[in-house]
Design a protein around this nucleic acid. Structure first.
Lengths: 203, 203
DNA sequence: CCACTTACATACGTGGCGTATGTCAATGAG
DNA sequence: CTCATTGACATACGCCACGTATGTAAGTGG
Protein backbone atom coordinates (compact mmCIF):
# COMPACT_ATOMS: atom_id res chain seq x y z
CA UNK A 1 0.00 0.00 0.00
CA UNK A 2 2.93 2.27 0.72
CA UNK A 3 0.74 5.15 1.86
CA UNK A 4 1.75 7.01 -1.25
CA UNK A 5 -0.91 9.65 -0.98
CA UNK A 6 0.31 12.58 0.97
CA UNK A 7 -0.32 16.06 -0.32
CA UNK A 8 1.82 17.05 -3.22
CA UNK A 9 3.89 19.76 -1.57
CA UNK A 10 4.86 17.40 1.16
CA UNK A 11 6.16 14.85 -1.31
CA UNK A 12 8.23 17.54 -2.95
CA UNK A 13 9.79 18.69 0.26
CA UNK A 14 10.60 15.09 1.01
CA UNK A 15 12.26 14.61 -2.36
CA UNK A 16 14.32 17.73 -1.95
CA UNK A 17 15.35 16.68 1.52
CA UNK A 18 16.36 13.23 0.33
CA UNK A 19 18.44 14.68 -2.47
CA UNK A 20 20.14 17.15 -0.19
CA UNK A 21 20.87 14.49 2.38
CA UNK A 22 22.32 12.06 -0.14
CA UNK A 23 24.38 14.76 -1.81
CA UNK A 24 25.61 15.96 1.55
CA UNK A 25 26.91 12.51 2.38
CA UNK A 26 28.53 12.14 -1.03
CA UNK A 27 30.13 15.59 -0.99
CA UNK A 28 31.42 15.05 2.52
CA UNK A 29 32.99 11.69 1.80
CA UNK A 30 34.25 11.86 -1.76
CA UNK A 31 34.30 15.60 -2.36
CA UNK A 32 32.36 17.69 -4.81
CA UNK A 33 34.35 16.83 -7.93
CA UNK A 34 34.36 13.10 -7.33
CA UNK A 35 30.73 12.78 -6.34
CA UNK A 36 28.77 11.23 -9.19
CA UNK A 37 25.28 12.58 -9.57
CA UNK A 38 24.07 9.26 -10.90
CA UNK A 39 25.41 7.52 -7.83
CA UNK A 40 24.01 9.61 -5.07
CA UNK A 41 20.66 10.25 -6.72
CA UNK A 42 20.30 6.49 -7.08
CA UNK A 43 21.20 6.14 -3.43
CA UNK A 44 18.27 8.41 -2.69
CA UNK A 45 16.02 6.25 -4.86
CA UNK A 46 15.83 8.89 -7.60
CA UNK A 47 17.54 9.86 -10.82
CA UNK A 48 19.29 12.93 -12.08
CA UNK A 49 16.01 14.10 -13.56
CA UNK A 50 14.76 15.03 -10.11
CA UNK A 51 17.97 16.82 -9.35
CA UNK A 52 17.90 18.99 -12.44
CA UNK A 53 14.25 19.73 -11.90
CA UNK A 54 14.70 21.04 -8.40
CA UNK A 55 18.21 22.46 -8.34
CA UNK A 56 19.10 23.30 -11.92
CA UNK A 57 22.54 21.71 -11.85
CA UNK A 58 25.14 20.12 -9.67
CA UNK A 59 26.31 23.45 -8.34
CA UNK A 60 22.76 24.38 -7.41
CA UNK A 61 22.45 21.29 -5.29
CA UNK A 62 25.78 22.05 -3.69
CA UNK A 63 24.52 25.50 -2.76
CA UNK A 64 21.50 23.95 -1.11
CA UNK A 65 23.67 21.56 0.86
CA UNK A 66 25.93 24.36 1.94
CA UNK A 67 23.01 26.54 2.97
CA UNK A 68 21.75 23.74 5.18
CA UNK A 69 25.09 23.26 6.88
CA UNK A 70 25.57 26.99 7.26
CA UNK A 71 22.25 27.34 8.97
CA UNK A 72 23.01 24.55 11.39
CA UNK A 73 26.30 26.21 12.22
CA UNK A 74 24.68 29.55 12.86
CA UNK A 75 22.08 28.03 15.15
CA UNK A 76 24.75 26.31 17.19
CA UNK A 77 26.85 29.46 17.42
CA UNK A 78 23.93 31.57 18.54
CA UNK A 79 23.02 29.09 21.23
CA UNK A 80 26.55 29.19 22.54
CA UNK A 81 26.93 32.93 22.66
CA UNK A 82 23.50 33.24 24.27
CA UNK A 83 24.55 30.95 27.10
CA UNK A 84 27.54 33.03 28.16
CA UNK A 85 27.39 35.24 31.26
CA UNK A 86 29.16 38.29 29.86
CA UNK A 87 29.28 39.65 26.37
CA UNK A 88 33.02 39.30 26.22
CA UNK A 89 32.80 35.70 27.30
CA UNK A 90 30.12 35.04 24.73
CA UNK A 91 32.33 36.57 22.11
CA UNK A 92 35.20 34.31 23.06
CA UNK A 93 33.04 31.22 23.33
CA UNK A 94 31.47 31.82 19.98
CA UNK A 95 34.77 32.13 18.23
CA UNK A 96 36.25 29.14 19.94
CA UNK A 97 33.18 27.12 19.05
CA UNK A 98 33.73 28.18 15.49
CA UNK A 99 37.21 26.75 15.63
CA UNK A 100 35.95 23.52 17.07
CA UNK A 101 33.21 23.13 14.50
CA UNK A 102 35.79 23.39 11.78
CA UNK A 103 37.25 20.20 13.14
CA UNK A 104 34.31 18.23 11.84
CA UNK A 105 35.28 16.49 8.61
CA UNK A 106 32.04 17.33 6.89
CA UNK A 107 32.50 21.04 7.52
CA UNK A 108 36.14 20.83 6.59
CA UNK A 109 35.47 19.29 3.26
CA UNK A 110 32.26 20.95 2.16
CA UNK A 111 32.47 24.39 3.71
CA UNK A 112 36.18 25.06 3.94
CA UNK A 113 37.64 23.26 0.97
CA UNK A 114 35.17 22.63 -1.84
CA UNK A 115 32.95 25.57 -1.05
CA UNK A 116 35.39 28.30 -2.04
CA UNK A 117 36.45 26.42 -5.16
CA UNK A 118 32.90 25.88 -6.36
CA UNK A 119 31.13 29.02 -5.23
CA UNK A 120 33.95 31.51 -4.85
CA UNK A 121 34.93 33.64 -1.91
CA UNK A 122 33.13 32.58 1.28
CA UNK A 123 32.83 36.18 2.37
CA UNK A 124 30.31 36.63 -0.42
CA UNK A 125 28.04 33.80 0.66
CA UNK A 126 24.82 35.14 2.17
CA UNK A 127 25.20 33.22 5.37
CA UNK A 128 28.89 33.78 5.88
CA UNK A 129 27.99 37.42 5.94
CA UNK A 130 25.39 36.69 8.57
CA UNK A 131 28.00 35.07 10.77
CA UNK A 132 30.41 37.93 10.21
CA UNK A 133 27.66 40.36 11.09
CA UNK A 134 27.10 38.59 14.36
CA UNK A 135 30.76 38.93 15.26
CA UNK A 136 30.78 42.52 14.08
CA UNK A 137 27.74 43.36 16.18
CA UNK A 138 29.40 41.84 19.19
CA UNK A 139 32.51 43.90 18.63
CA UNK A 140 30.51 47.10 18.23
CA UNK A 141 28.72 46.43 21.49
CA UNK A 142 31.98 45.63 23.24
CA UNK A 143 33.47 48.85 21.98
CA UNK A 144 30.42 50.76 23.24
CA UNK A 145 30.93 49.22 26.64
CA UNK A 146 34.48 50.53 26.51
CA UNK A 147 35.89 47.06 26.79
CA UNK A 148 37.78 46.82 23.56
CA UNK A 149 39.94 49.33 21.76
CA UNK A 150 38.70 51.59 19.03
CA UNK A 151 39.09 49.58 15.85
CA UNK A 152 36.99 49.21 12.77
CA UNK A 153 34.63 46.47 13.84
CA UNK A 154 34.00 44.83 10.51
CA UNK A 155 37.65 44.68 9.59
CA UNK A 156 38.47 43.16 12.93
CA UNK A 157 35.64 40.67 12.61
CA UNK A 158 37.05 39.52 9.29
CA UNK A 159 40.52 39.10 10.70
CA UNK A 160 39.23 37.18 13.66
CA UNK A 161 37.15 34.77 11.67
CA UNK A 162 40.09 34.25 9.37
CA UNK A 163 42.27 33.39 12.30
CA UNK A 164 39.62 31.01 13.62
CA UNK A 165 39.27 29.28 10.30
CA UNK A 166 42.94 28.82 9.83
CA UNK A 167 43.39 27.60 13.35
CA UNK A 168 40.71 25.05 12.69
CA UNK A 169 42.43 23.82 9.57
CA UNK A 170 45.64 23.49 11.48
CA UNK A 171 44.05 21.52 14.28
CA UNK A 172 42.11 19.25 11.99
CA UNK A 173 45.20 18.23 10.09
CA UNK A 174 47.61 17.90 12.95
CA UNK A 175 48.72 14.57 14.32
CA UNK A 176 47.33 15.21 17.77
CA UNK A 177 44.24 17.40 17.33
CA UNK A 178 43.54 17.44 21.03
CA UNK A 179 46.88 18.91 22.01
CA UNK A 180 46.97 21.25 19.05
CA UNK A 181 43.50 22.45 19.86
CA UNK A 182 44.60 23.47 23.34
CA UNK A 183 47.54 25.45 21.98
CA UNK A 184 45.39 27.10 19.35
CA UNK A 185 42.64 28.13 21.73
CA UNK A 186 45.22 29.55 24.13
CA UNK A 187 46.87 31.57 21.40
CA UNK A 188 43.51 32.69 20.12
CA UNK A 189 42.51 33.90 23.54
CA UNK A 190 45.76 35.83 23.80
CA UNK A 191 45.16 37.41 20.44
CA UNK A 192 41.69 38.48 21.51
CA UNK A 193 42.87 39.85 24.81
CA UNK A 194 45.21 42.09 22.88
CA UNK A 195 42.09 43.89 21.78
CA UNK A 196 41.06 44.84 25.28
CA UNK A 197 41.87 48.32 26.46
CA UNK A 198 44.94 48.20 28.63
CA UNK A 199 44.35 47.13 32.20
CA UNK A 200 40.87 45.73 31.75
CA UNK A 201 40.33 42.30 33.29
CA UNK A 202 39.55 39.52 30.81
CA UNK A 203 36.29 38.87 32.56
CA UNK B 1 66.71 25.97 -39.51
CA UNK B 2 64.91 26.34 -36.20
CA UNK B 3 68.09 25.50 -34.28
CA UNK B 4 66.44 22.36 -33.03
CA UNK B 5 69.56 20.79 -31.71
CA UNK B 6 70.14 21.80 -28.16
CA UNK B 7 71.14 19.19 -25.63
CA UNK B 8 68.31 16.99 -24.59
CA UNK B 9 67.99 18.01 -20.98
CA UNK B 10 67.58 21.58 -22.08
CA UNK B 11 64.73 20.69 -24.42
CA UNK B 12 63.02 18.86 -21.60
CA UNK B 13 63.26 21.75 -19.23
CA UNK B 14 61.86 23.97 -21.93
CA UNK B 15 58.92 21.65 -22.49
CA UNK B 16 58.17 21.48 -18.81
CA UNK B 17 58.38 25.23 -18.53
CA UNK B 18 56.03 25.72 -21.46
CA UNK B 19 53.51 23.31 -20.02
CA UNK B 20 53.65 24.93 -16.61
CA UNK B 21 53.29 28.39 -18.08
CA UNK B 22 50.32 27.45 -20.25
CA UNK B 23 48.62 25.58 -17.43
CA UNK B 24 49.24 28.47 -15.08
CA UNK B 25 47.45 30.84 -17.41
CA UNK B 26 44.57 28.42 -17.91
CA UNK B 27 44.17 27.66 -14.20
CA UNK B 28 44.29 31.33 -13.35
CA UNK B 29 41.67 32.38 -15.86
CA UNK B 30 39.22 29.49 -16.05
CA UNK B 31 40.01 27.63 -12.85
CA UNK B 32 41.30 24.14 -12.36
CA UNK B 33 38.10 22.26 -13.06
CA UNK B 34 37.26 24.14 -16.23
CA UNK B 35 40.72 24.11 -17.72
CA UNK B 36 40.85 21.59 -20.53
CA UNK B 37 44.13 19.75 -20.82
CA UNK B 38 43.72 19.43 -24.56
CA UNK B 39 43.28 23.17 -24.85
CA UNK B 40 46.21 24.46 -22.91
CA UNK B 41 48.63 21.79 -24.05
CA UNK B 42 47.76 22.75 -27.62
CA UNK B 43 48.32 26.36 -26.71
CA UNK B 44 51.82 25.35 -25.68
CA UNK B 45 52.31 23.57 -28.99
CA UNK B 46 52.11 20.13 -27.41
CA UNK B 47 49.61 17.41 -26.61
CA UNK B 48 48.43 15.68 -23.49
CA UNK B 49 51.03 13.01 -24.09
CA UNK B 50 53.76 15.34 -22.95
CA UNK B 51 51.77 16.31 -19.91
CA UNK B 52 51.19 12.77 -18.75
CA UNK B 53 54.79 11.91 -19.40
CA UNK B 54 56.18 14.69 -17.23
CA UNK B 55 53.55 15.23 -14.58
CA UNK B 56 51.58 12.01 -14.33
CA UNK B 57 48.17 13.62 -14.35
CA UNK B 58 46.33 16.89 -14.19
CA UNK B 59 46.80 17.19 -10.47
CA UNK B 60 50.54 16.65 -10.87
CA UNK B 61 50.78 19.58 -13.22
CA UNK B 62 48.73 21.66 -10.84
CA UNK B 63 51.18 20.88 -8.06
CA UNK B 64 54.03 22.03 -10.27
CA UNK B 65 52.25 25.29 -11.05
CA UNK B 66 51.52 25.86 -7.40
CA UNK B 67 55.09 25.14 -6.40
CA UNK B 68 56.27 27.75 -8.86
CA UNK B 69 53.90 30.39 -7.56
CA UNK B 70 54.70 29.53 -3.97
CA UNK B 71 58.37 29.97 -4.57
CA UNK B 72 57.88 33.34 -6.17
CA UNK B 73 55.81 34.42 -3.20
CA UNK B 74 58.44 33.32 -0.72
CA UNK B 75 61.17 35.17 -2.57
CA UNK B 76 59.15 38.35 -2.55
CA UNK B 77 58.32 38.02 1.12
CA UNK B 78 61.91 37.43 2.10
CA UNK B 79 63.06 40.45 0.16
CA UNK B 80 60.53 42.59 1.95
CA UNK B 81 61.31 41.46 5.46
CA UNK B 82 65.03 41.79 4.75
CA UNK B 83 64.61 45.43 3.78
CA UNK B 84 63.02 46.47 7.06
CA UNK B 85 65.00 48.37 9.68
CA UNK B 86 63.76 46.55 12.79
CA UNK B 87 62.64 43.01 13.23
CA UNK B 88 59.22 44.09 14.37
CA UNK B 89 58.83 46.29 11.33
CA UNK B 90 59.95 43.46 9.08
CA UNK B 91 57.42 41.22 10.73
CA UNK B 92 54.65 43.70 10.05
CA UNK B 93 55.77 44.42 6.51
CA UNK B 94 55.97 40.79 5.65
CA UNK B 95 52.49 40.07 6.83
CA UNK B 96 51.02 43.09 5.14
CA UNK B 97 52.76 42.15 1.93
CA UNK B 98 51.18 38.75 2.27
CA UNK B 99 47.80 40.39 2.41
CA UNK B 100 48.55 42.45 -0.63
CA UNK B 101 49.80 39.53 -2.65
CA UNK B 102 46.56 37.76 -2.01
CA UNK B 103 44.90 40.54 -3.95
CA UNK B 104 46.37 39.27 -7.18
CA UNK B 105 43.74 37.31 -9.10
CA UNK B 106 46.13 34.54 -10.04
CA UNK B 107 47.05 33.91 -6.42
CA UNK B 108 43.45 34.20 -5.37
CA UNK B 109 42.28 31.62 -7.79
CA UNK B 110 45.11 29.12 -7.85
CA UNK B 111 46.53 29.30 -4.35
CA UNK B 112 43.58 30.33 -2.23
CA UNK B 113 40.61 28.77 -3.94
CA UNK B 114 41.45 25.81 -6.13
CA UNK B 115 44.56 24.79 -4.24
CA UNK B 116 42.82 23.61 -1.08
CA UNK B 117 40.09 21.83 -3.05
CA UNK B 118 42.56 19.95 -5.23
CA UNK B 119 45.45 19.31 -2.88
CA UNK B 120 43.87 19.55 0.55
CA UNK B 121 44.79 21.69 3.51
CA UNK B 122 47.34 24.39 2.60
CA UNK B 123 49.06 23.97 5.93
CA UNK B 124 50.26 20.60 4.68
CA UNK B 125 51.87 21.94 1.53
CA UNK B 126 55.66 21.89 1.80
CA UNK B 127 56.06 25.53 1.00
CA UNK B 128 53.18 26.84 3.08
CA UNK B 129 55.03 25.31 5.97
CA UNK B 130 58.14 27.14 4.91
CA UNK B 131 56.29 30.45 5.01
CA UNK B 132 54.75 29.61 8.35
CA UNK B 133 58.18 28.72 9.66
CA UNK B 134 59.47 32.10 8.64
CA UNK B 135 56.74 33.83 10.59
CA UNK B 136 57.26 31.47 13.51
CA UNK B 137 60.99 32.16 13.54
CA UNK B 138 60.30 35.87 13.56
CA UNK B 139 57.97 35.51 16.50
CA UNK B 140 60.44 33.42 18.44
CA UNK B 141 63.12 36.06 17.91
CA UNK B 142 60.73 38.83 18.90
CA UNK B 143 59.84 36.96 22.06
CA UNK B 144 63.55 36.51 22.84
CA UNK B 145 64.02 40.23 22.48
CA UNK B 146 61.24 40.63 25.02
CA UNK B 147 59.15 42.57 22.58
CA UNK B 148 56.13 40.33 22.33
CA UNK B 149 54.26 38.42 24.99
CA UNK B 150 54.91 34.81 25.85
CA UNK B 151 52.73 32.85 23.48
CA UNK B 152 53.22 29.64 21.57
CA UNK B 153 54.90 30.92 18.44
CA UNK B 154 53.67 28.40 15.94
CA UNK B 155 50.07 28.67 17.05
CA UNK B 156 50.25 32.42 16.82
CA UNK B 157 51.88 32.25 13.41
CA UNK B 158 49.00 30.14 12.16
CA UNK B 159 46.42 32.52 13.51
CA UNK B 160 48.19 35.47 11.99
CA UNK B 161 48.51 33.99 8.56
CA UNK B 162 44.88 32.99 8.72
CA UNK B 163 43.91 36.54 9.52
CA UNK B 164 46.07 37.81 6.68
CA UNK B 165 44.57 35.42 4.21
CA UNK B 166 41.05 36.22 5.14
CA UNK B 167 41.73 39.91 5.07
CA UNK B 168 43.08 39.50 1.60
CA UNK B 169 39.98 37.69 0.44
CA UNK B 170 37.86 40.40 1.89
CA UNK B 171 39.80 43.14 0.19
CA UNK B 172 39.93 41.41 -3.15
CA UNK B 173 36.18 40.99 -3.27
CA UNK B 174 35.15 44.33 -1.91
CA UNK B 175 33.79 47.08 -4.10
CA UNK B 176 36.56 49.50 -3.25
CA UNK B 177 39.69 47.42 -2.64
CA UNK B 178 41.78 50.48 -1.99
CA UNK B 179 39.68 51.75 0.88
CA UNK B 180 39.08 48.29 2.26
CA UNK B 181 42.76 47.58 2.15
CA UNK B 182 43.48 50.58 4.33
CA UNK B 183 40.94 49.51 6.91
CA UNK B 184 42.22 45.95 6.88
CA UNK B 185 45.85 46.90 7.28
CA UNK B 186 44.98 49.21 10.13
CA UNK B 187 43.00 46.55 11.93
CA UNK B 188 45.75 44.06 11.27
CA UNK B 189 48.33 46.36 12.76
CA UNK B 190 46.15 46.80 15.82
CA UNK B 191 45.78 43.08 16.17
CA UNK B 192 49.54 42.64 15.99
CA UNK B 193 50.22 45.40 18.47
CA UNK B 194 48.04 43.55 20.92
CA UNK B 195 50.84 41.03 21.02
CA UNK B 196 53.41 43.48 22.28
CA UNK B 197 54.17 43.47 25.98
CA UNK B 198 52.33 46.34 27.60
CA UNK B 199 53.97 49.68 27.26
CA UNK B 200 56.42 48.83 24.52
CA UNK B 201 56.53 51.26 21.65
CA UNK B 202 55.44 49.87 18.28
CA UNK B 203 58.83 50.75 16.84
C1' DC C 1 76.68 1.51 -35.81
C1' DC C 2 73.25 -0.67 -33.27
C1' DA C 3 70.37 -1.78 -29.35
C1' DC C 4 67.95 0.61 -26.12
C1' DT C 5 65.84 4.28 -23.79
C1' DT C 6 63.23 8.41 -23.71
C1' DA C 7 60.08 12.09 -25.12
C1' DC C 8 56.56 12.81 -27.00
C1' DA C 9 51.99 12.02 -30.35
C1' DT C 10 47.93 9.29 -31.64
C1' DA C 11 43.99 6.37 -30.83
C1' DC C 12 40.65 4.53 -27.92
C1' DG C 13 37.51 3.56 -24.06
C1' DT C 14 34.93 5.21 -20.21
C1' DG C 15 32.35 8.04 -17.34
C1' DG C 16 30.08 12.09 -16.08
C1' DC C 17 27.40 16.18 -17.09
C1' DG C 18 23.64 18.65 -19.31
C1' DT C 19 19.54 18.70 -22.31
C1' DA C 20 15.67 17.25 -24.85
C1' DT C 21 11.93 14.43 -24.61
C1' DG C 22 8.56 11.33 -22.66
C1' DT C 23 5.19 9.80 -19.00
C1' DC C 24 2.24 9.62 -15.28
C1' DA C 25 -0.05 11.52 -11.41
C1' DA C 26 -2.05 15.50 -9.07
C1' DT C 27 -4.83 19.61 -9.38
C1' DG C 28 -8.66 22.81 -10.77
C1' DA C 29 -12.52 24.35 -13.64
C1' DG C 30 -16.94 23.48 -15.37
C1' DC D 1 -17.34 13.63 -12.13
C1' DT D 2 -14.44 14.55 -16.10
C1' DC D 3 -11.16 16.44 -18.76
C1' DA D 4 -7.44 19.61 -19.72
C1' DT D 5 -3.36 21.31 -17.83
C1' DT D 6 0.49 21.64 -15.05
C1' DG D 7 4.23 19.85 -12.69
C1' DA D 8 7.39 16.12 -10.94
C1' DC D 9 9.95 13.18 -12.18
C1' DA D 10 12.38 9.24 -15.52
C1' DT D 11 14.62 8.00 -19.90
C1' DA D 12 17.56 8.63 -23.79
C1' DC D 13 21.02 10.93 -26.17
C1' DG D 14 25.26 13.60 -27.33
C1' DC D 15 29.35 15.76 -25.97
C1' DC D 16 33.40 16.60 -23.70
C1' DA D 17 37.19 15.52 -20.82
C1' DC D 18 40.20 12.52 -18.57
C1' DG D 19 43.25 8.54 -18.43
C1' DT D 20 45.63 4.67 -20.74
C1' DA D 21 47.54 1.86 -24.15
C1' DT D 22 50.11 1.97 -28.09
C1' DG D 23 53.02 3.88 -31.72
C1' DT D 24 57.17 6.52 -33.41
C1' DA D 25 61.09 9.08 -34.00
C1' DA D 26 65.01 11.05 -32.02
C1' DG D 27 68.72 10.83 -28.88
C1' DT D 28 72.26 8.14 -26.22
C1' DG D 29 75.79 4.66 -24.63
C1' DG D 30 78.61 0.90 -25.76
Amino acid sequence: MKAAHKPRSEMIAETRAKLIAAARRAFATTGYANASMDDFTAEAGLTRGALYHHFGDKKGLFEAVLAQIDQEMCVRLNEISARAKTRWQGFLDENIAYVEMALEPEIQRIVLRDGPAVLGDPAQWPNANACISAITANLVALKAEGLVRDIDAEAMARLISGASLYAAQWIANSEDPGATSIKAVKAFRALMEGLLVAGKPAS
